[in-house]
Design a binder for these strands. Structure first.
Length: 697
RNA sequence: GCCACCGUAGCUCAGUGGUAGAGCGCACCCUUGGUAAGGGUGAGGUCACGGGUUCAACUCCCGUCGGCGGCUCCA
């Protein structure tokens, strides 16, 4: 006699075992016709799952309007669509073996082994989609059946798909007592897949779908293991939703910093220079310089000292720090002392012998620095410190080099040479929390100025089961507590993650998503008890004795490369005036006003503002279009009327028409104010208080 | 590093086993035009690089470099 409680609190009782479908039918025929699944006591289930006891039931429907489709409905549709896609692929490639095909937050994929088949090409998507269409039109039911562990494993052994056997064993190990299959149609007759479900009732309930892309993956995510083909797709209830999704992806591509960077000539990566080595072209260099100046101003206010250090250091330095042995695989190979190299060569030393000698420390060389901390540590160590001097805060826009895997490199977000907004704080233990808070404050100020509020904070703690960490457990406890304490005072969402710590200490990471939704770690703050020991750093305490300082590594924006990459996407290339490579462009209506235009240009230029003048023999319409394409924030249109009145007609980026004519001097003053205040005081407010401008313009 | 796909003019991209194409951009000329493309003419390519097959390769095959999408990694 199950009593069913619905989300609105009402209850319905049934005489016998029931199912979500029966519950829906009991409510209304309309509901039953749109139901595709249910949550029973919070768990997502098939529509015909038997309910034998009292339960909370939420019916999942696919029809709630285009704007607010239930995420559960999308999960059901996408997982079901993955099955249909896999069946379609197996029709075309019968010898493939299925591995794993889950729904994602933003689509679905199916991992398939093509070991015994010709590889799949994206040219074949259309053919696969055609097969999928046929399967969906047949509207075959998803039929669930269950076998006990022994019978189920026997069946899988007989079929011989090692991946599915492995999936089954894993399911049984994690507590399942039986195995379930879903046939698309009838058991023993139609295509089927080992799968825990749930699914929509029948293939006809899958809405609009599309195969997106083909990629590769490893079995169990293990690079040593089998290579699998991963086919990504997406599915929605309505075709309009699919169209909107595809359109959004197109727009994201236009916002991609690689596209914008090329169009606006912000940076260039050159084949002949090297993979992952960024060349900052003049426009991008302006953005970077402005940003660095801004950050440096904030650092000065917070009591940092600026330092400069070279790009290389002795190999032994990194043996002391531990970086060389620990990260050897991801560093550029060392530069070996030329005399020593020649001697070894004369002695007939082989490459492997050389490599061994370098690892053991029998040979001296230099390393392109993969980190700035050893250099900063040696600066600290170069003079004695009293407890009265602490904290010592050494800051540098320090360029480091890392041998990232070639397949990982791309754009500005993953590179081999990059400049960190780095600093190292040397302090006493009871200063740690305050220093971390200072770092967080800096991040807040800068993100706020840039209008970036969509970021997350992750506190990375050690994994208690791993032995990769160095240092005393008691120190780790203290450092982890300090991180937590500081982050709690910051008003942003944060999570704790065990196993995300650096090998020498816990850290606080800032994570931002790019335009394609991929998360990137930007900045990081790390507490380090380890390096001060390794380098035997001390300060003189109140008691006159030597004490050990604690170090904080912090690069709140990570690397200038990655940060600006994310920033380009954040602004879609439309930088605020203070950051824009070109801040103002003067557009004379015809050559007749070139003289006045030149005067306007020169006056602005003399103030150190980045201004240009479009002298091309074009109509003003073409000049406006060109300036708009280059995302210049302010266009000054000057014709005879403006020259006569010593005014400029002002066009703001993103607004269809000009805002009106203002006195040249008034505009210039307002422009200077906006730039100097980094946008806090806008030209709009000071020159055009009555103009109504949409916020996102 | 692994797997798949891709590499043609400054940019975006067509194209074919038989002497290389468009649009935009660029240069020059005409036009002097008031708010998102005025018109004309012209220059510009060793078809990423190196091998091979072929009478003939931009096209087919192999390798290298680079890009893209994932996987793995990220102090």
């Amino acid at each position: 006699m199950p009593i069913i409680t619905l989300p609105d609190g009402t209850t319905r009782s049934f005489d016998t075992t029931t199912s979500p479908l029966q519950v829906a039918e009991d409510i209304s025929a309309g509901l039953a016709s749109v139901a595709i699944g249910a949550r029973i006591n919070g768990e997502l289930c098939d529509l015909n799952t038997p309910i034998e006891e009292d339960a909370q039931v939420k019916i999942v429907t696919a029809r709630k309007g285009e704007k607010e489709t239930d995420p559960d409905a999308l999960l059901l549709i996408r997982h079901s669509c993955a099955h249909v896609m896999a069946e379609a692929i197996q029709r075309i490639r019968p010898k493939t073996e299925l591995v794993y095909g889950p729904a994602l937050e933003n689509g679905f994929y199916y991992d398939i082994s093509f070991e015994n088949e010709e590889p799949l090409s994206s040219d074949e998507f259309e053919a696969i989609e055609k097969e999928m269409k046929a399967i969906i039109e047949e509207n075959r039911p998803f039929t669930r059946y269950e076998l006990d562990a022994t019978t189920g494993l026997e069946k899988l052994e007989k079929e011989g798909n090692k991946y599915k056997i492995d999936n089954a064993k894993r399911a049984l190990e994690t507590g399942s007592t039986s195995l379930t299959w879903y046939a698309t149609g009838e058991k023993d007759k139609n295509w089927e897949d080992l799968c825990k479900g749930p699914h929509v009732p029948s293939t006809g309930r899958i809405g609009s779908y599309k195969i997106m892309t083909i990629a590769s993956s490893y079995w169990h995510g293990d690079a040593e293991s089998d290579n699998l083909t991963r086919v990504y797709g997406n599915a929605f209830v309505y075709s309009k939703q699919l169209k909107a999704y595809l359109k959004q992806r197109e727009e994201a591509k236009l916002r991609d910093h690689r596209t914008v960077g090329k169009n606006l000539r912000l940076f260039h990566v050159d084949e002949q220079v090297g993979q992952g080595l960024v060349l900052w072209t003049p426009n991008g260099a302006v953005v970077r310089q402005e940003l660095q100046t801004f950050i440096a101003e904030q650092l000065q206010l917070q009591g940092y000292s600026q330092v400069f250090t070279p790009h290389i250091g002795k190999l032994d330095l990194y043996r002391t720090s531990g970086h060389y042995p620990y990260y050897q695989e991801s560093q550029y190979p060392p530069l070996i002392d030329p005399d020593q190299l020649k001697r070894l060569s004369d002695e007939g030393c082989s490459c492997s012998e050389l490599s061994n000698m370098m690892a053991k420390g029998d040979i001296e060389g230099y390393l392109l620095k993969p980190m700035n901390c050893p250099h900063h540590i040696r600066i600290y160590a170069s003079s004695p410190h009293s407890y009265r001097d602490l904290p010592v805060r050494l800051a540098e826009f320090g360029t480091v080099y890392r041998w990232e895997q070639s397949g990982e490199i791309g754009g500005l977000t993953r590179v081999r040479g990059f400049t960190q907004d780095d600093a190292h704080l040397f302090c006493m233990e009871d200063q740690i929390a305050d220093e971390i808070r200072g770092c967080l404050e800096l991040v807040k100020v800068i993100f706020a100025t840039l209008g970036m509020d969509d970021y997350k904070v992750r506190v990375g703690l050690r994994d208690p089961d791993s032995d990769k960490y160095v240092g005393e457990a008691s120190n780790w406890d203290k450092a982890e507590a300090a991180c937590r304490e500081a982050v709690e005072s910051l008003d942003v969402p944060w999570t704790e993650d065990a196993g995300e710590a650096a090998f020498y200490g816990p850290k606080i990471d800032f994570i931002v998503n790019d335009v394609l939704g991929r998360p990137w770690q930007l900045g990081t703050i790390q507490v380090d008890y380890n390096l001060p020991i390794r380098f035997d750093l001390t300060y003189i305490g109140k008691d006159g004795g030597h004490h050990r300082p604690v170090m904080i590594h912090r690069a709140p924006f990570g690397s200038m490369e990655r940060f600006i990459g994310v920033l380009i996407e954040h602004f879609a290339g439309a930088f605020p005036t203070w950051l824009a490579p070109e801040q103002v462009r003067v557009l004379p209506i015809s050559e007749k006003t070139n003289d006045y235009a030149q005067e306007v240009h020169d006056l602005i230029h003399a103030l150190g503002i980045r201004v240009s003048m479009d002298k091309n023999d074009e109509r003003v319409q073409a000049k406006i279009r060109e300036a708009a394409n280059m995302k210049v924030p302010w266009q000054l249109i000057v014709g005879p009327r403006d020259a006569e009145a010593r005014q400029v007609s002002v066009r703001m980026r993103g607004i269809r028409h000009d805002l009106g004519a203002v006195d040249l001097d008034t505009f210039i003053t307002a422009l200077q104010t906006e730039i100097q205040s980094r946008g806090k005081e806008s030209i709009l407010e000071n020159c055009f208080p009555d103009v109504d401008v949409p916020k996102d313009a």
